[in-house]
């Protein structure tokens, strides 16, 4: 048929060095165009969006498809489940300002930007996770209870000192002192 005949001439012309260059670039342009065709209108995609399954559409086309069957929203190409929230717009350079002639079509969904990691971006003195956020509640009577219920922002909670060191011994001693203070306090409360 006609198509196969043109293909063979194309091949022969591309294999030839000088004269074939022109037709070669033309063919490549054609190929590039068809790679960015909307799967619904078969035209070059305008306001392009791409589904999670990787299929390209004009946003107006895909929107109309989703509106046609609101109960069964599937990709027109591979029938994977799709939704308005899960399509990604493609922003080519200098092509985003094109106005859509179909006014009733809502704007295509915005791109989703995830902020970079907060540790690297830096929020000094306020952070979650590795920057240390501790919240502790205690039960007690005024004035002691007031101090036991605290919010600690900022500094990471220090770990327990290793066994046998000077610090460990001091900590043991301090905890015993506070334990005795607490016992005395409760005793005083009961007596009073």
């Amino acid at each position: 048929m006609a198509s196969s005949a043109t293909e063979t001439t194309k091949e022969s012309s591309t294999s030839g060095s000088g004269s074939g260059d022109n037709s070669e670039t033309k063919d490549e342009e054609k190929k590039d165009d068809s790679m960015f065709e909307c799967n619904i209108c078969l035209d070059t995609a305008r306001d392009a969006v791409v589904s999670m399954c990787g299929h390209l559409f004009c946003w107006p086309c895909l929107h109309q498809w989703l509106e046609t069957r609101p109960n069964r929203q599937v990709c027109p190409v591979c029938k994977a489940a799709i939704s308005k929230e899960k399509v990604v717009p493609l922003y080519g350079r200098g092509s985003t300002k094109q106005e859509d002639p179909r006014e009733k079509v809502p704007p295509r969904p915005a791109g989703q930007r995830t902020e970079p990691d907060p540790a690297t971006a830096g929020f000094p003195g306020f952070g979650f996770g590795e920057n240390g956020f501790h919240m502790s509640f205690g039960i007690g009577a005024f004035p002691f209870g007031f101090f036991t219920s605290t919010l600690n922002f900022g500094e990471p909670r220090p770990g327990a000192a290793p066994r046998g060191t000077q610090q460990h011994l001091e900590e043991q001693f301090l905890s015993k002192v506070f334990l005795w203070l607490a016992v005395l306090f409760i005793f005083w409360l009961l007596m009073a």
Binding site: N39, I40, H55, C61, W65, R72, P76, V77, K79
Partner: peptide, 8 residues
């Protein structure tokens, strides 16, 4: 019928 898809 119901299994039609716009890319067909």
């Amino acid at each position: 019928k119901d299994q039609w898809a716009a890319a067909m």
